[in-house]
């Protein structure tokens, strides 16, 4: 098992290294002068030259490449053009907010997705099945930013049930930062009122973000369960007198869930992408709003760092998913090695 894990990690490294090279190549082969883009339309030639020197853009291309790779490998992404603070610090400060939201969404989509998929499969071709099928295709067609705004319109502006934006009531202050995960920090601070506020703020963004994942998981669980139901061992179990529910819970779901676990890995990418738009709508102070801010202020270093950090997180999740899959189904580990 340890060999499998190491092997899987080693497989992920070339792609990440490639990403470092790719971002460099693209930032240099693209038409136009990056220094001029950074300086903006109103910049004088002297200002452009200054920026060029500041970013090392006046050096030979191979030297720039080496510097770029060395900086990225040592986690040195320079200072943000926007705030003047080290980019890595800013990202480390914001990453927990995004991870907290993403995990909440992942939890929602897995719980409800597996349940809906199972119910749909057990009601094969019945009304529940059709409803879940519609939901699972429709859920992938909704633009997350639009759903977010619609939910805000109904539940925050019209009904006034849930907060419109942010992570917590500003009047409550913030708990001392320990982990950066607000749900954990409020608990550590022993402030149930803050925890309640944080949870209330999380409902709409997490639901918005969870919907596409829920759709995917429901769909794959459904087809996985349907496939498992056709297996001989299920037939035997039924002949031996097992009830439908017990059969589904004990025999079918475990076999069907392997497919679902693979999907969770793929989903994480969709969740991180979705988080960019959802965070922008809900003013969620995470990586997504940071990326949007970086784009709007032409903060090239910040955006590059976000891309690399997301790449690393994405790789870690995918390795974890492969390992989880190998633990559930030993045949997978054999197949991969």
């Amino acid at each position: 098992m340890a060999r499998f894990v190491i092997r899987r990690i080693l497989l992920a490294l070339p792609a990440l290294f490639g990403l470092v090279v790719l971002t460099f190549v693209l930032s240099r082969v693209v038409p136009g002068d990056p220094a001029a883009t950074l300086a903006g339309d109103a910049a004088t030639p002297a200002q452009i030259a200054e920026i060029r020197a500041q970013y090392g853009l006046d050096r030979p291309i191979w030297e720039q490449a080496i510097v770029h790779v060395r900086q990225v490998l040592t986690g040195d992404f320079g200072r943000s053009v926007f705030s003047g603070r080290p980019v890595v610090e800013e990202i480390a400060f914001r990453l927990p907010a995004t991870l907290e939201l993403t995990f909440a969404a992942l939890l929602l989509s897995t719980l409800f997705g597996v349940a809906l998929g199972l119910v749909a499969a057990l009601d094969h071709n019945g009304p529940v099945d059709h409803l879940v099928r519609l939901l699972s295709i429709g859920g992938l067609a909704i633009a997350s930013f639009w759903l977010a705004i619609m939910l805000q319109l109904v539940f925050s502006m019209d009904l006034d049930w849930l907060p419109l934006r942010g992570r917590m009531d500003v009047t409550l202050g913030t708990p001392p930062r320990v982990t950066g995960f607000l749900l954990v920090d409020t608990l550590l601070a022993g402030r149930p009122d803050m925890l309640a506020s944080a949870l209330r703020h999380m409902v709409l963004p997490a639901v918005t973000l969870a919907l596409p994942g829920l759709a995917t998981i429901a769909r794959f669980t459904r087809s996985g369960v349907l496939e498992a139901l056709q297996k001989d061992y299920v037939l035997y179990a039924r002949a031996a007198g097992y009830g439908r529910v017990r059969l589904a819970a004990i025999y079918v779901l475990r076999n069907a869930v392997t497919v679902t676990v693979t999907q969770i890995g793929l989903l994480f990418g969709a969740l991180i992408s979705g988080a960019v738009a959802v965070e922008a709508v809900f003013d969620w102070p995470g990586l997504g709003t940071y990326a949007v801010q970086a784009i709007l202020s032409s903060d090239y270093k910040a955006l590059l760092a976000v891309t690399m950090v997301v790449g690393v997180v994405y790789a870690v999740v995918n390795v974890a998913v492969d390992v989880a899959q190998a633990l559930i189904d030993p045949r997978v580990a054999e197949e991969m090695s």
Partner: peptide, 25 residues
């Protein structure tokens, strides 16, 4: 195929945002 993997190492939207920004929006 390794190059293909590199392009799949980051979610599409993030990569599109980065590329879109490196060129002119």
């Amino acid at each position: 195929m390794r190059v293909t993997d590199v392009f799949l190492a980051v979610p599409q939207l993030i990569l599109a945002l980065a590329l879109g920004q490196l060129m002119r929006p």
